[in-house]
Design a protein around this nucleic acid. Structure first.
Lengths: 116, 116
DNA sequence: TTGACAATTGAATAGTTGTTCAATTATAAT
DNA sequence: ATTATAATTGAACAACTATTCAATTGTCAA
């Protein structure tokens, strides 16, 4: 049987064999790309940026981002699932806060790449 | 005229008004989310990870990732457009290399978030 | 308990994206 | 010139995703 997907042979098989054992495991690979997928949306970047400044409830965030509560709530759920924010209910409101101290430094690194 | 998209009033208008001036400009916002979009794909993470170890040509990368040259080439183009990799042609081969020293530290920060 | 408000939810839709496939370009070797 | 190999390209398809809309839950006030 031959389950190779690649449609060619390696030109430098020595390099490939040296690099291969250092490649990330499948699980880690998907955790990494899933994390960046969560960051890869302008609405969610805005939410994280805002929550870096202050805790806020869904309605406040909706006004700040000029979006419906529904749209904001959907995206907050994504951030909550990714454990980047946490929420607490106070009366009729639900307040959200950052739940990861890496977010800020990752945003800063990304800003460095972009060139400020 | 009223071009508000949000379907509510702010509960804490003082907080919203304090945070608003610190929000990122539209251009920066999209540069940030576009950058993370590029990182948010397991194939491209693998390519960056591999190129951190060594320059390689498209065929080598295809064998290493067990994908077709076409699929790899398409993704390399995305990375090239994002200025994360550069390429040079040597004979029939095109060799790719990392073109951004931030990639490594951003991956490391992301690994910290995930918890190694 | 009735009415109003905050937030969540699920379904639907429109837009985006990754891989495949077939065709093409460019280089090297015979 | 011809053939073979490396890589790129564009179109097509399937899978995924963000927002909208309507309906629902939960909480407070009257």
């Amino acid at each position: 049987m031959d389950s190779r997907r690649s449609d060619c042979e390696a030109t430098n098989i020595d390099i490939v064999n040296r690099v291969r054992p250092n490649m990330p495991e499948t699980r880690l690979l998907y955790e990494l790309s899933d994390f960046f997928k969560v960051m890869g949306d302008s609405t969610r970047i805005q939410l994280l940026w805002a929550l870096e400044e202050s805790e806020m409830c869904v309605g406040d965030l909706a006004v700040l981002l000029d979006m419906t509560k529904s749209a904001v709530s959907h995206q907050l759920k994504v951030l909550r699932t990714a454990k980047l924010v946490r929420s607490k209910k106070i009366g009729k409101n639900v307040y959200y806060a950052l739940d990861d101290h890496h977010v800020k430094s990752i945003l800063e690194k990304a800003l460095e790449h972009i060139g400020e």
